[in-house]
Design a protein around this nucleic acid. Structure first.
Lengths: 204, 204
DNA sequence: GTCTATATTGGGATAGAC
DNA sequence: GTCTATCCCAATATAGAC
């Protein structure tokens, strides 16, 4: 991937337009005509920057994964009380997971994953796996400080952590039944997940 | 939905063929030609039974949801020790969730959910919501028997229960990175989830 | 009800001018 | 690099015979 600062304006327009459309409509339902229209360029220009529809989608996914990892840096702290730190982690990751960008990306990669293994693999490594590594590091540091049980394996606990966030609220948002969840619903889900995680992982 | 016993053979062939194809290829990638070929009937026959591709997919999804609820009856017991009962639940639901049929259905409904709200809603009610109701009943009965904490809300705990199963193994299977998970990987995931659930929910 | 054959549209990709 | 105009195939759905 090229340096973001050196990206051409047209390429940016195309990536943004494609991101919006793929997120809201999925992969198959979005035509290259529609992307060109949304981006305000001609279809031929699309093909000047990307070899095809799949390459364009792959670029959108890659960019989003990088953005996620960047954003997650801010919650990696250990200074507040354990419950507060845990709550921040849960809050951050739940809000990320139910964001339109994350839902749309996951939804579309999942749908196309079977036919495009390279895309699925690249997404997994840059997205979920990268997120799990971050969370695993946070858990390990909390263990070192004696605030989380020493006997749990961060490599097991990190996936369980994120899995717990993909509960009923997540499913309903992913299926499009709840376009935009209420703040109350999010907070309730965060509280419930935090309670369960602390009961399962907090040191005695 | 009509009585299964009264279904015509051709309709059965079409539903089975469509189920196989949608599961492995997704919705958009499967043509009605391919369904007709796989079912051994002509394309016109497809349209005699189903008004179109969406109706056909909807029928496949509905049938699978019914099958899931039927299958889940067998794990609703409370006679063995708590750990054993919990383990059976986890084992059953994890194996179901990572089955090709469940993954394929979820994947495809998710992808099409945005454009077909009715399908998404019908799937949610007949599938995830129905499963959660069953699990909620099981949890409530365990609470009544004093083996699970009285203060937890089954309506919160049931989604957390299933969410915990959609961990790293599930994601990798769903993305197609692991076509068929090893028995060891499944057992390890079951053990880990059972441990965490018991730590979080078992009565003291 | 079931087939063969076809109408028709939508969309990925490209040719060629500027 | 960017545009307009176009090619071409694939896929949904249907018409009409049996």
């Amino acid at each position: 991937m090229d340096n973001v600062d050196e990206i051409s304006p047209k390429r940016r327009q195309v990536l943004d337009a494609a991101g919006r459309l793929f997120t809201s409509e999925g992969f198959a339902a979005v035509s290259m005509d529609a992307v060109a229209r949304e981006a305000g360029v001609s279809k031929a220009t699309l093909y000047a920057y990307f070899t095809g529809k799949h390459a364009l989608f792959g670029a959108v996914v890659a960019e989003r994964c990088v953005a996620m990892v960047e954003a997650s840096r801010i919650v990696n702290d250990h200074d507040a009380p354990l419950r507060e730190c845990m709550r921040r982690q849960v809050d951050f990751w739940l809000r990320f997971l139910i964001s339109p960008a994350a839902i749309g990306t996951y939804r579309t990669v999942l749908a196309e994953g079977g036919r495009f293994p390279d895309l699925a693999h690249a997404f997994y490594e840059a997205g979920p796996a990268a997120g799990l590594r971050w969370i695993g590091l946070w858990i390990a540091e909390e263990q070192r400080r004696g605030r989380l049980r020493a006997e749990i394996d961060p490599r097991r606990a990190a996936p369980q952590f994120t899995a717990l966030l993909r509960g009923d609220l997540y499913i309903q948002v992913a299926l499009g039944l709840i376009p935009v969840p209420s703040e109350e619903a999010i907070v309730a889900e965060v509280d419930a997940a935090t309670d369960t995680l602390l009961r399962a992982y907090a040191a005695a």
